[in-house]
Nucleic acid binder design. Structure first.
Lengths: 246, 246
DNA sequence: GCTCTACTGTTTATGGCATACGCGGTATTG
DNA sequence: CAATACCGCGTATGCCATAAACAGTAGAGC
């Protein structure tokens, strides 16, 4: 019944009676400006004033296009996601399909990591969100899973991708601020831990530190993403075939 | 090297020279007050003024205890998590252990869901965070996984739990606002989707809606959590034993 | 053509926020 | 007793989102 206004606008369900003066902006221009601000200065800088300044327009002008800042943020999340990757061919392996789907999502989010700090206010109803959902479901077509199981599986993957990108981005700019190279990010965390922990109370972590688990250069963010995805896909494979994934 | 100040305080590494007047507050009192405000009015209401008012103290007094609001938010996330559940016995099944670990975390987060909107600013260094990590590692002791693999596994589970609780909380208060019962939450989403979608462009979602996947009362949030956990655990089991999980 | 009217972008105002700064007071240390 | 170092507070600054009132503009109907 009550779909938020910005959602209806995004789907083109609101027609404008062309009465008054011509509009100087479009929703797309506004969202683009917001993306520029966010990329340059992070989410806290994404204020109505900054966006308006970017467009050489007064702050309040934006409210002719958007009902509230929250609505604009919803539009931003949709724009960041962008359209989903091409759909898989009918004969393709579902595993490859889901992996590619997740990886494409990762790439999209990673190009605007600050946007992950936007508080989610509900399940996605925006066009790109729905299109991604459709694409994900298509990847799972051959699995024979029940419809709600497919949804749950996609939610699982989606959550993983978001968490992964957010965590990496946080790590990155936490240690960016400390003028450390990317390679030292993890080892910096290890050293911080080592300073706080004593071996008696935290034997497992101590062991981890002894094993230099945080200094290993071999395991970058890409490997971590691949690791998580393989675990999830293995878990789904058990459900699909009842067999181990070879 | 440079551990944030609030982290050092939380670990008790800052000793106070007892010179001046007695302190009227403690960090714990402040955090408790913040939790009360958050629980009552949500994260946006958690402002320094509101917390100070809750304690009958001026706003600026809080800054004698906390370097910034961000630091206070870190303390809040740690308090919400609380101490981890009891460690598993040496002979226990790792699967049960991890599930219980995740479920305990879910319970902790669910009692303060608003706190999940606090932006994470890096890997956890606070006492409870570290204690939970230790507990999780202990659950994985019998698996024989490599140390960094264990970490990756815990991160995977942790991300899932957080995402799941956050999503559920968002759904809940999105539809709370629309004066709808909890049972109608999902079906309300289904109806919104149905209004926006056409069957040609979104055949898979259309099919999902036809199958009434959003109206099924049988699949509540608990089942969804269990589903995700079982998938992840199955995926890990493949890694641990090289065999399917029965 | 003219007027009406809905729509445009703008200015100004309000109330909230985090926090920098400096004050007078207080309890411990020498 | 005096010095010191810390306490809690009041004030002030500069952001922020957004409500309200305003003057200009262009299409609709005549």
């Amino acid at each position: 019944m009550e779909v938020p206004e910005s959602v209806e606008i995004a789907w083109g369900l609101r027609e404008r009676p062309g009465k008054g003066p011509k509009r100087t902006l479009t929703l797309e221009h506004i969202v683009e400006a917001a993306l520029r601000v966010g990329s340059a200065e992070g989410l806290p800088a994404v204020s109505m004033s900054k966006i308006a300044a970017e467009l050489d327009v007064s702050t309040m002008a934006l409210y002719r296009y958007v009902a509230s800042k929250g609505d604009l943020l919803m539009l931003i999340t949709d724009a960041v996601l962008g359209p989903p990757p091409p759909l898989p061919e009918p004969g393709d392996d579902w595993r490859d399909g889901v992996y590619r789907w997740a990886d494409a999502m990762r790439a999209a989010l990673q190009s605007h990591p600050w946007s992950l700090r936007i508080p989610i206010t509900g399940p996605g109803l925006m066009p790109n969100h729905v299109a991604w959902m459709e694409a994900g479901l298509r990847c799972l077509r051959g699995t024979g899973l029940a419809p709600d199981t497919k949804m749950a599986a996609l939610l699982l993957v989606n959550g993983f991708v978001r968490t992964e990108v957010a965590l990496l981005a946080d790590l990155r700019d936490a240690f960016d601020a400390s003028k450390v190279t990317e390679e030292e990010m993890l080892s910096g965390y290890g050293r911080s831990l080592a300073r706080l922990i004593d071996a008696q109370r935290f034997p497992e972590i101590h062991e981890l530190l002894e094993a230099r688990a945080f200094d290993m250069p071999g395991s970058g963010p890409d490997d971590e993403f691949a690791f998580g995805m393989e675990r999830i896909l293995d878990g789904l494979a058990v459900l699909v075939t009842g067999k181990p994934p070879a």
